[in-house]
Simulated assay, not measured.
Amino acid sequence: MRTSEWVFVVDDDRAARESLEYLLTSVGYRVCGFQSANDFIAGYGDRVGCLILDVRMPGMSGLQLLLELERRQPPLSTILVTGHGDVPMAVTAMRHGAIDFLQKPFNNQALLDRTEEAMARARGLYKAEISRSEVDANFNRLTCREREVAWLIFGGMSNKQIAAELELSCKTVEAHRANVMGKMSAHCVVDLVQKLNVLVGPKPFPDLKSVRSHSTAG
C-alpha cells in the first residue's frame, strides 16, 4: 500500500479525471483531483507527490501551470497528458520539468509505471530539500570565526595554513575546527566539504576576503 503517497490529477474533463482517480486509488495511492490549474494551486499545499496534468484546459493551461511550478520548485514530479499532443509541445514540457508526456488514450499500466517513476523522483526532491534545510540550520549555528575556518577547510587549507591566514594559534584553530565538525554533523573533512557544497556549489573560496564576505552573508 502507498497510503503516504499523493497523486494529484488536474483535468477539466470530469469523466477522465474520475477514471484516473479510480485507477490510482485501486493500486493504493492517495488521490486528489482538481478541475482547473487554479484550483490545484489553491489546494495543493506543497505536498510530496506526482502531478498528472492535462495540457489543454480553460483558463491556465497545463503548460502554464508547469512554468509556475518550475518557478516555485515544489517536491512534485509532473506527467502531462493530452489528446492533442505534438512533438514541440512535448519538448517544451520536458524542458520545463515534466518527466513524461502521454497522449490520450494511453495504456493504464504505462501510466502507473510513469507514476511510480514520478513518485521516486519526488521523494528524491523532498530528501534534497530536507538535506539543504538541515545544512542551512547547522551552518547558521556557526560563529563568524567558525564560518571562516569552515570555508578555509573547504578551500583545502591545513590547520597550520588556517592559523597563519587568520593569525591564530594552531590550538585555537583545532578548537574551531572541532566545533565546525560537530555543529555541521560532519564525520570527516570530505563530509564537511559535501555539506558546504550543498550551500555554495563546488567553487572554493581561496582568499580571506571572499571567505569573510561569505561567512557573514545571510
Results as ranks from 00 to 15, higher is better:
Glu18Asn: 09
Leu199Thr: 04
Phe106Ile: 11
Leu66Ala: 06
Leu69Tyr: 02
Gly156Cys: 02
Ala110Tyr: 11
Asp46Gln: 11
Phe40Lys: 05
Thr82Met: 15
Tyr126Gly: 10
Pro58Leu: 15
Thr172Trp: 04
Ile41Arg: 05
Thr3Tyr: 13
Ala98Ile: 04
Gln109Gly: 08
Val211Met: 02
Val193Arg: 13
Pro206Ile: 04
Phe101Gly: 02
Leu67Gly: 13
Phe40Ala: 01
Trp6Phe: 14
Thr115Arg: 15
Ala178Ser: 06
Val135Gln: 02
Asn197Glu: 04
Leu168Val: 05
Gly59Ile: 07
Arg30Glu: 11
Met57Thr: 09
Arg71Cys: 10
Gly59Ser: 10
Thr92Asn: 08
Thr115Ala: 14
Val200Pro: 01
Asp113Cys: 07
Val189Gln: 09
Pro88Ser: 01
Lys127Asn: 10
Val31Pro: 06
Leu208Asn: 06
Ala37Gln: 00
Leu199Phe: 07
Leu53Val: 11
Ala175Val: 12
Arg71Pro: 06
Gln73Val: 04
Met157Ile: 00
Arg121Trp: 07
Phe205Lys: 00
Ser210Lys: 03
Pro88Ile: 01
Leu51Asp: 01
Gly218Cys: 08
Leu53Glu: 09
Cys144Arg: 09
Asp11Gln: 04
Val10Gly: 04
Leu65Val: 05
Leu23Glu: 11
Val55Glu: 04
His96Phe: 11
Leu112Lys: 09
Ala118His: 07
Ser213Arg: 09
Leu112Asp: 08
Gln35Gly: 10
Val149Asp: 00
Val27Tyr: 15
Leu168His: 07
Arg2Pro: 07
Thr115Asp: 13
Ala164Lys: 03
Phe34Gln: 09
His176Ser: 07
Arg30Ile: 05
Arg114Tyr: 08
Val27Cys: 06
Val81Ala: 06
Gln161Asp: 05
Leu23Asp: 10
Leu66Asp: 00
Leu166Pro: 02
Gly182Pro: 01
Leu67Cys: 07
Val31Ala: 07
Met184His: 00
Glu117His: 13
Met157Phe: 00
Ala150Lys: 01
Thr115Pro: 11
Pro74Leu: 03
Pro75Phe: 13
Val173Leu: 04
Asp11Cys: 07
Thr82Tyr: 06
Gln109Leu: 14
Ala217Gln: 10
Arg212Met: 08
Phe40Trp: 05
Ile130Ser: 07
Glu129Cys: 08
Met157Thr: 01
Asp136Gln: 03
Gly85His: 09
Cys50Arg: 05
